[in-house]
Write a protein that binds this DNA or RNA. Structure first.
Lengths: 222, 222
DNA sequence: GATGTCAATACAGATTTCTGTAATGGAGCC
DNA sequence: GGCTCCATTACAGAAATCTGTATTGACATC
Protein backbone atom coordinates (compact mmCIF):
# COMPACT_ATOMS: atom_id res chain seq x y z
CA UNK A 1 0.00 0.00 0.00
CA UNK A 2 1.02 3.63 -0.40
CA UNK A 3 3.29 4.63 2.41
CA UNK A 4 3.30 8.42 2.02
CA UNK A 5 0.31 10.52 1.04
CA UNK A 6 -0.36 14.23 0.59
CA UNK A 7 -3.90 15.56 1.18
CA UNK A 8 -4.83 18.99 -0.20
CA UNK A 9 -8.28 20.12 0.93
CA UNK A 10 -9.19 23.52 2.23
CA UNK A 11 -12.13 22.40 4.34
CA UNK A 12 -10.50 21.52 7.60
CA UNK A 13 -13.17 19.12 8.67
CA UNK A 14 -13.17 17.21 5.39
CA UNK A 15 -9.41 17.16 5.68
CA UNK A 16 -9.62 15.52 9.08
CA UNK A 17 -12.20 13.09 7.75
CA UNK A 18 -9.94 11.94 4.91
CA UNK A 19 -7.06 11.41 7.27
CA UNK A 20 -9.27 9.43 9.64
CA UNK A 21 -10.41 7.17 6.80
CA UNK A 22 -6.90 6.59 5.46
CA UNK A 23 -5.79 5.80 8.99
CA UNK A 24 -8.62 3.59 10.16
CA UNK A 25 -9.67 1.83 6.99
CA UNK A 26 -6.46 1.48 4.97
CA UNK A 27 -3.74 1.76 7.55
CA UNK A 28 -1.86 4.66 6.01
CA UNK A 29 -0.25 6.74 8.72
CA UNK A 30 2.30 8.88 6.96
CA UNK A 31 -0.06 11.61 5.77
CA UNK A 32 0.58 15.29 5.34
CA UNK A 33 -2.23 17.77 4.95
CA UNK A 34 -2.44 21.19 3.34
CA UNK A 35 -5.22 23.75 3.31
CA UNK A 36 -3.83 25.78 0.44
CA UNK A 37 -2.60 24.71 -2.97
CA UNK A 38 0.63 26.60 -2.47
CA UNK A 39 1.21 24.90 0.88
CA UNK A 40 0.62 21.54 -0.73
CA UNK A 41 3.09 22.39 -3.45
CA UNK A 42 5.74 23.46 -0.96
CA UNK A 43 5.34 20.27 1.06
CA UNK A 44 5.60 18.29 -2.14
CA UNK A 45 8.77 20.15 -3.21
CA UNK A 46 10.39 19.65 0.16
CA UNK A 47 9.65 15.93 0.16
CA UNK A 48 10.93 15.66 -3.39
CA UNK A 49 14.16 17.43 -2.57
CA UNK A 50 14.65 15.26 0.51
CA UNK A 51 14.20 12.12 -1.64
CA UNK A 52 11.19 11.13 0.46
CA UNK A 53 8.63 11.54 -2.25
CA UNK A 54 4.86 11.34 -1.89
CA UNK A 55 3.39 8.40 -3.75
CA UNK A 56 -0.16 9.69 -3.80
CA UNK A 57 -1.82 13.09 -3.95
CA UNK A 58 -5.44 13.42 -2.87
CA UNK A 59 -6.72 16.87 -3.74
CA UNK A 60 -9.87 18.91 -3.92
CA UNK A 61 -10.52 21.07 -6.98
CA UNK A 62 -11.82 24.32 -5.59
CA UNK A 63 -10.07 26.23 -2.86
CA UNK A 64 -11.76 29.26 -1.39
CA UNK A 65 -10.00 32.55 -1.55
CA UNK A 66 -9.14 34.30 1.66
CA UNK A 67 -6.63 36.81 2.94
CA UNK A 68 -3.64 34.71 1.88
CA UNK A 69 -3.04 35.41 -1.81
CA UNK A 70 -2.20 32.21 -3.69
CA UNK A 71 -0.39 31.66 -6.96
CA UNK A 72 -2.35 28.42 -7.47
CA UNK A 73 -6.05 28.79 -6.97
CA UNK A 74 -7.35 25.38 -7.97
CA UNK A 75 -6.48 21.73 -7.66
CA UNK A 76 -5.96 21.65 -11.41
CA UNK A 77 -3.02 24.04 -11.15
CA UNK A 78 -1.63 22.00 -8.30
CA UNK A 79 -1.84 18.74 -10.24
CA UNK A 80 -0.16 20.24 -13.29
CA UNK A 81 2.70 21.71 -11.27
CA UNK A 82 3.31 18.55 -9.27
CA UNK A 83 3.10 16.26 -12.26
CA UNK A 84 5.60 18.41 -14.15
CA UNK A 85 8.17 17.52 -11.50
CA UNK A 86 7.11 13.99 -10.60
CA UNK A 87 5.11 12.64 -13.55
CA UNK A 88 4.50 9.22 -12.04
CA UNK A 89 2.81 10.41 -8.84
CA UNK A 90 -0.67 8.97 -8.48
CA UNK A 91 -3.45 11.54 -8.23
CA UNK A 92 -6.95 11.16 -6.80
CA UNK A 93 -9.34 14.10 -7.01
CA UNK A 94 -11.87 14.38 -4.21
CA UNK A 95 -14.43 17.01 -5.05
CA UNK A 96 -18.01 18.15 -4.88
CA UNK A 97 -18.09 18.31 -8.67
CA UNK A 98 -20.47 15.79 -10.21
CA UNK A 99 -20.81 17.03 -13.76
CA UNK A 100 -19.73 14.32 -16.19
CA UNK A 101 -18.04 16.63 -18.66
CA UNK A 102 -15.85 18.20 -16.00
CA UNK A 103 -14.87 14.82 -14.54
CA UNK A 104 -14.18 13.48 -18.02
CA UNK A 105 -11.86 16.38 -18.60
CA UNK A 106 -9.84 15.53 -15.50
CA UNK A 107 -9.21 12.00 -16.70
CA UNK A 108 -8.58 12.93 -20.31
CA UNK A 109 -6.51 16.08 -19.98
CA UNK A 110 -4.85 15.66 -16.59
CA UNK A 111 -4.59 11.86 -16.57
CA UNK A 112 -5.70 11.63 -13.00
CA UNK A 113 -5.84 8.11 -11.59
CA UNK A 114 -9.03 8.31 -9.62
CA UNK A 115 -11.99 10.46 -8.74
CA UNK A 116 -14.15 10.41 -5.62
CA UNK A 117 -17.30 12.49 -5.40
CA UNK A 118 -17.97 14.07 -2.02
CA UNK A 119 -21.10 12.31 -0.99
CA UNK A 120 -22.94 9.84 1.09
CA UNK A 121 -20.73 6.92 0.15
CA UNK A 122 -17.47 8.77 0.04
CA UNK A 123 -15.76 6.59 2.65
CA UNK A 124 -16.31 3.36 0.79
CA UNK A 125 -15.56 5.02 -2.53
CA UNK A 126 -12.38 6.60 -1.24
CA UNK A 127 -11.14 3.29 0.17
CA UNK A 128 -11.92 1.46 -3.08
CA UNK A 129 -10.34 4.24 -5.10
CA UNK A 130 -7.09 4.29 -3.15
CA UNK A 131 -6.83 0.51 -3.34
CA UNK A 132 -7.63 0.47 -7.05
CA UNK A 133 -5.16 3.20 -7.88
CA UNK A 134 -2.51 1.39 -5.87
CA UNK A 135 -3.02 -1.64 -8.11
CA UNK A 136 -2.55 0.55 -11.15
CA UNK A 137 -6.19 0.94 -12.09
CA UNK A 138 -7.95 4.08 -13.22
CA UNK A 139 -10.92 4.46 -10.91
CA UNK A 140 -13.97 6.34 -12.19
CA UNK A 141 -16.74 7.33 -9.81
CA UNK A 142 -19.80 5.07 -9.98
CA UNK A 143 -21.99 8.08 -10.75
CA UNK A 144 -20.26 8.41 -14.10
CA UNK A 145 -19.90 4.82 -15.21
CA UNK A 146 -23.52 4.11 -14.34
CA UNK A 147 -24.69 7.24 -16.00
CA UNK A 148 -25.22 7.31 -19.73
CA UNK A 149 -25.16 11.09 -19.68
CA UNK A 150 -21.43 11.03 -20.31
CA UNK A 151 -22.00 9.29 -23.60
CA UNK A 152 -24.84 11.40 -24.88
CA UNK A 153 -23.08 14.66 -24.26
CA UNK A 154 -23.64 17.65 -26.46
CA UNK A 155 -20.54 18.83 -28.20
CA UNK A 156 -19.93 22.56 -28.03
CA UNK A 157 -17.20 24.24 -30.03
CA UNK A 158 -15.45 27.50 -29.25
CA UNK A 159 -18.01 29.60 -31.08
CA UNK A 160 -20.88 28.04 -29.16
CA UNK A 161 -19.21 28.91 -25.88
CA UNK A 162 -18.51 32.46 -27.05
CA UNK A 163 -22.14 32.92 -28.09
CA UNK A 164 -23.45 31.55 -24.82
CA UNK A 165 -21.06 33.78 -22.91
CA UNK A 166 -22.05 36.91 -24.83
CA UNK A 167 -25.76 36.16 -24.60
CA UNK A 168 -25.49 35.61 -20.86
CA UNK A 169 -23.89 39.03 -20.61
CA UNK A 170 -26.94 40.54 -22.20
CA UNK A 171 -25.54 41.47 -25.60
CA UNK A 172 -27.91 41.50 -28.55
CA UNK A 173 -27.19 39.49 -31.65
CA UNK A 174 -26.31 42.67 -33.47
CA UNK A 175 -23.74 43.57 -30.83
CA UNK A 176 -22.35 40.06 -30.93
CA UNK A 177 -22.07 40.21 -34.70
CA UNK A 178 -20.05 43.41 -34.48
CA UNK A 179 -17.81 41.96 -31.76
CA UNK A 180 -17.12 38.83 -33.79
CA UNK A 181 -16.27 40.91 -36.87
CA UNK A 182 -13.83 42.96 -34.82
CA UNK A 183 -12.13 39.83 -33.55
CA UNK A 184 -12.09 38.28 -37.03
CA UNK A 185 -14.07 35.26 -35.91
CA UNK A 186 -15.47 33.73 -39.04
CA UNK A 187 -19.20 33.12 -38.92
CA UNK A 188 -20.35 36.56 -37.98
CA UNK A 189 -23.55 37.32 -39.81
CA UNK A 190 -26.62 37.78 -37.69
CA UNK A 191 -28.34 34.90 -39.42
CA UNK A 192 -25.41 32.57 -38.89
CA UNK A 193 -25.54 33.44 -35.21
CA UNK A 194 -29.28 32.87 -35.27
CA UNK A 195 -28.72 29.45 -36.79
CA UNK A 196 -26.16 28.50 -34.18
CA UNK A 197 -28.32 29.62 -31.33
CA UNK A 198 -31.33 27.83 -32.80
CA UNK A 199 -29.25 24.66 -32.86
CA UNK A 200 -28.42 25.21 -29.19
CA UNK A 201 -32.14 25.61 -28.53
CA UNK A 202 -32.66 22.16 -30.05
CA UNK A 203 -29.71 20.60 -28.26
CA UNK A 204 -30.71 21.83 -24.84
CA UNK A 205 -34.46 21.83 -25.45
CA UNK A 206 -34.66 25.53 -24.65
CA UNK A 207 -37.59 27.73 -25.52
CA UNK A 208 -35.65 30.95 -25.92
CA UNK A 209 -32.36 32.64 -25.13
CA UNK A 210 -33.21 33.26 -21.50
CA UNK A 211 -34.15 29.65 -20.98
CA UNK A 212 -31.00 28.51 -22.76
CA UNK A 213 -28.73 30.56 -20.54
CA UNK A 214 -30.53 29.30 -17.44
CA UNK A 215 -30.00 25.71 -18.57
CA UNK A 216 -26.31 26.02 -19.32
CA UNK A 217 -25.75 27.89 -16.07
CA UNK A 218 -27.41 25.03 -14.22
CA UNK A 219 -25.29 22.51 -16.09
CA UNK A 220 -22.24 24.50 -15.11
CA UNK A 221 -21.12 24.99 -18.69
CA UNK A 222 -20.91 28.73 -18.12
CA UNK B 1 -20.63 21.23 28.18
CA UNK B 2 -23.20 19.41 26.07
CA UNK B 3 -23.20 15.75 26.93
CA UNK B 4 -25.26 14.34 24.07
CA UNK B 5 -25.11 15.52 20.47
CA UNK B 6 -26.75 14.50 17.19
CA UNK B 7 -24.89 15.10 13.93
CA UNK B 8 -26.85 15.04 10.65
CA UNK B 9 -24.60 15.30 7.61
CA UNK B 10 -24.82 13.21 4.46
CA UNK B 11 -21.18 13.49 3.51
CA UNK B 12 -19.62 10.66 5.39
CA UNK B 13 -16.19 12.17 5.51
CA UNK B 14 -17.42 15.51 6.81
CA UNK B 15 -19.47 13.56 9.33
CA UNK B 16 -16.35 11.82 10.59
CA UNK B 17 -14.51 15.12 10.69
CA UNK B 18 -17.16 16.74 12.89
CA UNK B 19 -17.11 13.83 15.30
CA UNK B 20 -13.33 13.95 15.47
CA UNK B 21 -13.39 17.66 16.29
CA UNK B 22 -16.08 17.30 18.96
CA UNK B 23 -14.08 14.46 20.43
CA UNK B 24 -10.59 15.87 20.32
CA UNK B 25 -11.19 19.57 20.84
CA UNK B 26 -14.24 19.79 23.09
CA UNK B 27 -14.33 16.42 24.78
CA UNK B 28 -17.83 15.41 23.72
CA UNK B 29 -18.02 11.66 23.32
CA UNK B 30 -21.70 10.85 23.29
CA UNK B 31 -22.35 11.61 19.64
CA UNK B 32 -24.74 9.97 17.24
CA UNK B 33 -24.48 10.47 13.51
CA UNK B 34 -27.02 10.23 10.70
CA UNK B 35 -26.59 10.41 6.96
CA UNK B 36 -30.24 11.06 6.18
CA UNK B 37 -32.70 13.54 7.64
CA UNK B 38 -35.17 10.79 8.34
CA UNK B 39 -32.54 8.74 10.15
CA UNK B 40 -31.65 11.75 12.24
CA UNK B 41 -35.30 12.28 13.08
CA UNK B 42 -35.77 8.65 14.13
CA UNK B 43 -32.71 8.76 16.38
CA UNK B 44 -34.00 11.96 17.89
CA UNK B 45 -37.46 10.46 18.52
CA UNK B 46 -36.00 7.36 20.09
CA UNK B 47 -33.79 9.38 22.43
CA UNK B 48 -36.73 11.61 23.30
CA UNK B 49 -38.95 8.67 24.11
CA UNK B 50 -36.21 7.09 26.20
CA UNK B 51 -35.87 10.34 28.20
CA UNK B 52 -32.25 10.60 27.09
CA UNK B 53 -32.66 13.68 24.96
CA UNK B 54 -30.11 15.25 22.68
CA UNK B 55 -29.05 18.69 23.85
CA UNK B 56 -27.57 19.81 20.56
CA UNK B 57 -28.29 19.14 16.89
CA UNK B 58 -25.59 19.88 14.35
CA UNK B 59 -27.02 19.57 10.85
CA UNK B 60 -26.21 20.26 7.24
CA UNK B 61 -28.84 21.93 5.05
CA UNK B 62 -28.69 20.01 1.79
CA UNK B 63 -28.87 16.27 1.62
CA UNK B 64 -28.35 14.58 -1.70
CA UNK B 65 -31.07 12.39 -3.03
CA UNK B 66 -30.32 8.77 -3.63
CA UNK B 67 -32.16 5.47 -3.86
CA UNK B 68 -33.65 5.85 -0.37
CA UNK B 69 -36.72 8.06 -0.67
CA UNK B 70 -36.94 10.53 2.21
CA UNK B 71 -39.87 12.41 3.64
CA UNK B 72 -37.53 15.17 4.79
CA UNK B 73 -35.16 16.36 2.12
CA UNK B 74 -33.41 19.25 3.80
CA UNK B 75 -32.01 20.24 7.14
CA UNK B 76 -34.71 22.91 7.37
CA UNK B 77 -37.43 20.25 7.49
CA UNK B 78 -35.44 18.36 10.08
CA UNK B 79 -35.03 21.40 12.31
CA UNK B 80 -38.73 22.26 12.13
CA UNK B 81 -39.81 18.73 12.98
CA UNK B 82 -37.38 18.33 15.85
CA UNK B 83 -38.12 21.75 17.32
CA UNK B 84 -41.85 21.04 17.22
CA UNK B 85 -41.24 18.24 19.70
CA UNK B 86 -38.35 19.65 21.72
CA UNK B 87 -38.43 23.44 21.33
CA UNK B 88 -35.45 24.11 23.56
CA UNK B 89 -32.95 21.92 21.72
CA UNK B 90 -29.95 23.93 20.54
CA UNK B 91 -29.35 23.87 16.81
CA UNK B 92 -26.17 24.59 14.88
CA UNK B 93 -26.27 24.54 11.09
CA UNK B 94 -23.07 23.47 9.36
CA UNK B 95 -23.34 24.13 5.66
CA UNK B 96 -21.64 25.14 2.47
CA UNK B 97 -24.10 27.99 2.10
CA UNK B 98 -22.47 31.39 2.37
CA UNK B 99 -25.15 33.72 1.04
CA UNK B 100 -26.08 36.26 3.69
CA UNK B 101 -29.80 36.27 2.91
CA UNK B 102 -30.11 32.53 3.32
CA UNK B 103 -28.16 32.51 6.57
CA UNK B 104 -30.19 35.45 7.87
CA UNK B 105 -33.33 33.50 7.14
CA UNK B 106 -32.12 30.60 9.27
CA UNK B 107 -31.61 32.81 12.30
CA UNK B 108 -34.78 34.85 11.81
CA UNK B 109 -37.27 32.19 10.80
CA UNK B 110 -35.90 29.04 12.37
CA UNK B 111 -34.23 30.61 15.40
CA UNK B 112 -31.14 28.52 15.02
CA UNK B 113 -28.49 29.11 17.68
CA UNK B 114 -25.38 29.00 15.55
CA UNK B 115 -24.08 28.75 12.03
CA UNK B 116 -20.74 27.41 10.82
CA UNK B 117 -19.71 27.75 7.19
CA UNK B 118 -17.85 24.80 5.73
CA UNK B 119 -14.49 26.29 5.07
CA UNK B 120 -10.87 26.71 5.86
CA UNK B 121 -11.42 27.68 9.46
CA UNK B 122 -14.31 25.40 10.19
CA UNK B 123 -12.62 23.59 13.06
CA UNK B 124 -11.96 26.73 15.06
CA UNK B 125 -15.36 28.15 14.16
CA UNK B 126 -17.16 24.98 15.09
CA UNK B 127 -15.43 24.81 18.45
CA UNK B 128 -16.19 28.45 19.19
CA UNK B 129 -19.76 28.02 18.02
CA UNK B 130 -20.46 24.99 20.19
CA UNK B 131 -18.96 26.71 23.21
CA UNK B 132 -20.85 29.93 22.54
CA UNK B 133 -24.17 28.17 22.03
CA UNK B 134 -23.58 26.20 25.23
CA UNK B 135 -23.30 29.52 27.07
CA UNK B 136 -26.60 30.64 25.59
CA UNK B 137 -25.21 32.89 22.85
CA UNK B 138 -26.37 33.15 19.27
CA UNK B 139 -23.28 32.60 17.18
CA UNK B 140 -23.17 34.15 13.71
CA UNK B 141 -20.44 33.18 11.26
CA UNK B 142 -17.66 35.77 10.95
CA UNK B 143 -18.27 36.00 7.20
CA UNK B 144 -21.63 37.63 7.90
CA UNK B 145 -20.86 39.96 10.74
CA UNK B 146 -17.74 41.24 8.97
CA UNK B 147 -19.48 41.56 5.68
CA UNK B 148 -21.49 44.63 4.84
CA UNK B 149 -23.13 42.75 1.98
CA UNK B 150 -25.85 41.68 4.36
CA UNK B 151 -26.90 45.29 4.79
CA UNK B 152 -26.77 46.40 1.18
CA UNK B 153 -28.79 43.48 -0.05
CA UNK B 154 -31.45 43.73 -2.66
CA UNK B 155 -34.79 42.77 -1.25
CA UNK B 156 -36.75 40.33 -3.37
CA UNK B 157 -40.30 39.44 -2.50
CA UNK B 158 -42.19 36.32 -3.47
CA UNK B 159 -43.40 37.76 -6.74
CA UNK B 160 -39.87 38.69 -7.79
CA UNK B 161 -38.73 35.14 -7.19
CA UNK B 162 -41.69 33.73 -9.09
CA UNK B 163 -40.99 36.00 -12.03
CA UNK B 164 -37.31 35.13 -12.10
CA UNK B 165 -38.16 31.46 -11.90
CA UNK B 166 -40.69 31.62 -14.73
CA UNK B 167 -38.43 33.71 -16.93
CA UNK B 168 -35.54 31.30 -16.40
CA UNK B 169 -37.81 28.52 -17.58
CA UNK B 170 -38.34 30.34 -20.83
CA UNK B 171 -41.93 31.46 -20.36
CA UNK B 172 -43.01 34.66 -22.08
CA UNK B 173 -44.57 37.50 -20.18
CA UNK B 174 -47.93 36.64 -21.67
CA UNK B 175 -47.65 33.06 -20.42
CA UNK B 176 -46.57 34.29 -17.02
CA UNK B 177 -49.52 36.69 -16.87
CA UNK B 178 -51.91 33.83 -17.56
CA UNK B 179 -50.24 31.62 -14.97
CA UNK B 180 -50.44 34.33 -12.32
CA UNK B 181 -54.12 34.92 -13.08
CA UNK B 182 -54.82 31.22 -12.71
CA UNK B 183 -53.09 31.16 -9.34
CA UNK B 184 -54.85 34.34 -8.23
CA UNK B 185 -51.59 36.19 -7.63
CA UNK B 186 -52.45 39.84 -7.61
CA UNK B 187 -50.31 41.93 -9.93
CA UNK B 188 -50.86 40.04 -13.13
CA UNK B 189 -51.06 42.50 -15.96
CA UNK B 190 -48.33 42.33 -18.53
CA UNK B 191 -47.31 45.89 -17.84
CA UNK B 192 -47.11 45.29 -14.10
CA UNK B 193 -44.84 42.37 -14.81
CA UNK B 194 -42.83 44.57 -17.15
CA UNK B 195 -42.44 47.12 -14.41
CA UNK B 196 -41.31 44.55 -11.90
CA UNK B 197 -38.79 43.08 -14.27
CA UNK B 198 -37.54 46.52 -15.23
CA UNK B 199 -36.95 47.20 -11.55
CA UNK B 200 -34.98 43.98 -11.34
CA UNK B 201 -32.95 45.18 -14.33
CA UNK B 202 -32.07 48.28 -12.36
CA UNK B 203 -31.36 46.40 -9.14
CA UNK B 204 -29.03 43.89 -10.74
CA UNK B 205 -27.74 46.21 -13.46
CA UNK B 206 -28.93 43.82 -16.15
CA UNK B 207 -29.34 44.75 -19.79
CA UNK B 208 -32.17 42.36 -20.58
CA UNK B 209 -33.96 39.27 -19.35
CA UNK B 210 -31.24 36.88 -20.43
CA UNK B 211 -28.61 38.90 -18.65
CA UNK B 212 -30.79 39.13 -15.56
CA UNK B 213 -31.25 35.38 -15.34
CA UNK B 214 -27.53 34.81 -15.82
CA UNK B 215 -26.77 37.22 -12.97
CA UNK B 216 -29.19 35.71 -10.48
CA UNK B 217 -28.04 32.22 -11.40
CA UNK B 218 -24.48 33.27 -10.64
CA UNK B 219 -25.56 34.81 -7.36
CA UNK B 220 -27.28 31.55 -6.51
CA UNK B 221 -30.65 33.20 -6.00
CA UNK B 222 -32.21 30.73 -8.41
C1' DG C 1 -62.37 66.97 2.08
C1' DA C 2 -57.98 67.91 -0.31
C1' DT C 3 -53.48 66.33 -1.27
C1' DG C 4 -49.61 63.47 -2.39
C1' DT C 5 -47.73 58.85 -2.97
C1' DC C 6 -47.45 54.49 -4.86
C1' DA C 7 -48.61 50.27 -7.17
C1' DA C 8 -51.35 48.34 -10.79
C1' DT C 9 -52.98 48.80 -15.27
C1' DA C 10 -53.46 50.22 -20.23
C1' DC C 11 -51.49 51.50 -24.35
C1' DA C 12 -48.00 52.57 -27.96
C1' DG C 13 -43.84 52.39 -30.65
C1' DA C 14 -39.09 51.11 -31.40
C1' DT C 15 -36.15 47.34 -31.05
C1' DT C 16 -35.00 42.55 -30.73
C1' DT C 17 -35.99 37.72 -31.08
C1' DC C 18 -37.29 33.76 -33.42
C1' DT C 19 -38.45 31.08 -37.40
C1' DG C 20 -38.90 30.38 -41.84
C1' DT C 21 -37.14 30.30 -47.05
C1' DA C 22 -33.72 31.10 -50.40
C1' DA C 23 -29.16 32.23 -52.48
C1' DT C 24 -24.13 31.65 -52.34
C1' DG C 25 -19.84 29.30 -52.18
C1' DG C 26 -16.43 25.98 -50.68
C1' DA C 27 -15.03 20.92 -49.88
C1' DG C 28 -15.24 16.36 -51.23
C1' DC C 29 -16.56 12.60 -54.42
C1' DC C 30 -17.78 10.22 -58.85
C1' DG D 1 -16.70 19.09 -65.10
C1' DG D 2 -20.79 17.88 -62.52
C1' DC D 3 -22.67 16.55 -58.36
C1' DT D 4 -24.08 16.57 -53.44
C1' DC D 5 -23.46 18.18 -48.87
C1' DC D 6 -23.03 21.70 -45.65
C1' DA D 7 -22.05 26.06 -43.55
C1' DT D 8 -22.57 30.89 -44.26
C1' DT D 9 -25.19 34.69 -45.56
C1' DA D 10 -29.41 37.42 -46.87
C1' DC D 11 -34.00 38.60 -46.21
C1' DA D 12 -38.70 38.82 -44.28
C1' DG D 13 -42.53 38.51 -41.23
C1' DA D 14 -44.74 37.30 -36.85
C1' DA D 15 -44.01 37.42 -32.04
C1' DA D 16 -41.90 39.11 -27.94
C1' DT D 17 -39.17 42.48 -25.48
C1' DC D 18 -38.20 46.86 -23.70
C1' DT D 19 -39.19 51.63 -22.68
C1' DG D 20 -41.93 55.30 -22.32
C1' DT D 21 -46.38 58.00 -20.98
C1' DA D 22 -50.86 58.23 -18.94
C1' DT D 23 -54.85 56.75 -16.09
C1' DT D 24 -56.91 54.66 -12.21
C1' DG D 25 -57.63 53.50 -7.46
C1' DA D 26 -56.12 52.50 -2.78
C1' DC D 27 -54.03 54.46 1.15
C1' DA D 28 -52.07 57.62 4.30
C1' DT D 29 -51.44 62.48 5.87
C1' DC D 30 -52.66 66.95 6.80
Amino acid sequence: MFSKVLVAEDYEIANQGIIKVLNDKIGIHNIEEAKYCDDAYLKFRKAHNDQEVFELLITDLSFREDHKPQTRTSGIDLIKDIRSIQPDIKVIVYSQEDRPDKINMLFENLNINGYVCKGQHAIQELVACVQGVYQGDTVWPPEITNNSAANTMIHLDDLDIILLEELSQGFTKKEIRIKLKKQNISPNSESAIDKRVSKLFDDFKAKNTTHLVAIVKDLGIL
